[in-house]
Design a protein around this nucleic acid. Structure first.
Length: 504
RNA sequence: GGGCCUAUAGCUCAGUCGGUAGAGCAACGGACUUUUAAUCCGUGGGUCGACAGUUCGAGCCUGUCUGGGCCCA
């Protein structure tokens, strides 16, 4: 006191007024012997319990039921001798607390008015009643502070800016109903997905995220390093090659739901880390795996909205029910450009078509890649209702079996919903000799500077040489599934999406 | 990668022609025993994202950088 003290936190003196006042209130409580962060407080029921128990209580009644309830103070309406506050608990359930002079006395009432701020978490003990206006309430005989908030809550009636919501999701969850429901949507969808898999006798496995060699998809990886082994490691871009090892080993129906990492840009439909489903079904093919995919999506829709018709957050409805439309990729291109295009159409002809469409062409694109780009250019906007796009070019699908009839085409589909790619499914390539040739082609592309090309995974090829049964496989983005079910952007489906650090 | 928009009080946002920084909520002081975003009276709160430039003078104009959003590829 007598000496000059440097503040414990640098710049404590420079805190904004509201933060400083709350820190002073905390210190004041401690000085008076009141613990602002007690080890426990009284709680006999949740607010939801009380709401359920007294759903039909008449206006201005008493119950004689004494409870201790906790919640965060989100509104305060202080009058001279009777104070009201709205308490809110984690799922958004609210209940009114009332403190009256004749029940708690002058000292307690004064302390409530001066010590308790919006955002504080409190425990209130008293009788459950309804007010003269009919509001279900707890009429306090005493209260205690459960945890003092040192920061003011944002304005509860104006939505926080998108940036603030993402940077401070914990506050978003306190103040925004949709944030709370979104957070609970994902686990509901995850449970539904797992149930569908279990109904169909799929076994869930967990395969490595830290990999010696990345593979199973075309993407740039995040690179790490193992000090103990003195070698480079990669965060996985896909679990595919390990799940296929499982199928070789006899786990005939296998799935994994877990995180993949891709060292690429982030936008409204891409996140550097994202949850992905992959599954493999021995003795299945691209057709059987398409049926499974439809069941996964439709059951998830049913789980969260009780119907195959889902309502997006903006009120738009999307019907995911029934059997989905199928179109052939090359038929769609042919229709879109008005001249016949097949997997055998040479690169030069595709170039002419793309140029005529005014597309920007990357000279590194191979024939199949160019065909896919033309498809996206002419047809993507029509893919709002769920649509299987069947038959992708074989030169961009190194892990897929060739189509049983169409030359140059692979037995691969992409599922489009709402204009974006939700899932992809294959008849898997199981001939180890062809598989080796395809991976070596990829490695050649890699040597030429294609950073997304796959590496040759010798152990994977050895596994394939022990024979994998004919198999259908599928991959689906979980975040994108949530987008298709809700219409939200990917950053709203992920609780804590990657954000660059705030600058001081 | 290219283009457009954006950053101002704790939160959400105004800020005209370049001339002393504004509102609502929140906060602080006071009144109020049935409020529901309570009401009424009063008060305080700002490194206008950062740096540079133009100017007598910059929240505003110019440039660079940083964060965020949208569109295109």
């Amino acid at each position: 006191m007598s000496q000059e003290q440097t503040p414990a936190v640098p710049g404590e003196d420079d805190l904004p007024e509201q933060l400083r006042i709350r820190r002073e209130k905390r210190a004041g409580l401690i000085e008076r012997g009141v613990e602002p962060y007690p080890v426990s407080v009284l709680r006999t029921a949740s607010l939801a319990d009380i709401r359920a128990k007294y759903a039909t209580l008449e206006t201005d009644s008493t119950t004689g039921d004494i409870q201790s309830l906790t919640g965060r103070v989100i509104f305060k309406r202080d009058t001279g001798k009777l104070c009201f506050a709205t308490l809110r608990e984690g799922d958004g359930t609210e209940l009114q607390a009332m403190l009256s002079l004749d029940k708690v006395g002058q000292e307690v009432l004064d302390s409530w008015k001066s010590d308790i701020d919006l955002g504080d978490i409190v425990s209130v003990t008293g009788e459950i009643i309804t007010s003269k206006r009919g509001e279900l309430s707890i009429l306090a005989s005493s209260y205690s502070i459960a945890a003092k908030s040192l920061r003011p809550l944002p304005n509860d009636h104006k939505p926080m800016s998108e940036e603030t919501r993402v940077r401070m999701r914990y506050v978003d969850l306190i103040v925004r109903d949709e944030a709370r429901s979104n957070a609970r949507l994902r686990p509901a969808v995850m449970r539904s997905l797992r149930e569908t898999f279990h109904q169909q006798n799929f076994v869930e496995v967990e395969t490595p995220m830290l990999q010696v060699m990345h593979g199973g998809a075309a993407a740039r990886p995040f690179k790490s390093f193992s000090n103990a082994y003195d070698m480079d490691l990669f965060l996985r871009i896909a679990p595919e090659l390990f799940l296929k090892r499982c199928v070789v080993g006899g786990i005939e129906r296998v799935f994994e739901i877990n995180r993949n990492f891709r060292n690429e840009g982030a936008d409204s439909s891409h996140s550097p880390e994202f949850a992905m489903i992959e599954c493999y079904q021995a003795y299945g093919d691209w057709r059987s795996i398409a049926d499974l995919t439809r069941a996964l999506v439709q059951n998830a829709a049913m789980a969260i909205s009780g119907s195959h018709v889902v309502t997006h957050h903006d009120g738009r409805q999307a019907d995911l029910g029934g059997k989905w439309r199928e179109i052939s990729l090359y038929d769609a291109i042919t229709e879109g450009v008005g001249e016949s295009v097949t997997a055998l159409t040479p690169l030069e002809d595709l170039m002419k078509i793309a140029t005529k469409l005014g597309m920007k062409i990357d000279p590194k694109w191979i024939t199949g890649k160019l065909a896919e780009e033309i498809f996206e250019h002419v047809a993507k906007d029509q893919l709002i209702a769920p649509t299987f796009v069947m038959g992708f070019p074989i030169d961009t699908s190194p892990l897929v079996r060739a189509h049983r009839e169409l030359p140059g085409v692979a037995e691969k589909w992409d599922l489009y919903v709402d204009g974006f790619e939700l899932a992809t499914g294959y008849s898997e390539l199981i001939d180890p000799v062809v598989q080796r040739e395809r991976l070596i082609e990829q490695a050649t592309l890699g040597a030429k500077g294609d950073l997304e090309a796959m590496q040759v995974d010798e152990d994977f090829l050895r596994a394939m040489e022990f024979a994998m049964p004919p198999t259908g496989g599928m991959g689906m983005g979980v975040d994108r599934l949530l987008m298709a079910l809700t219409g939200l952007g990917i950053r709203e489906t992920i609780l804590f999406p990657l954000v660059k650090p705030e600058v001081e």
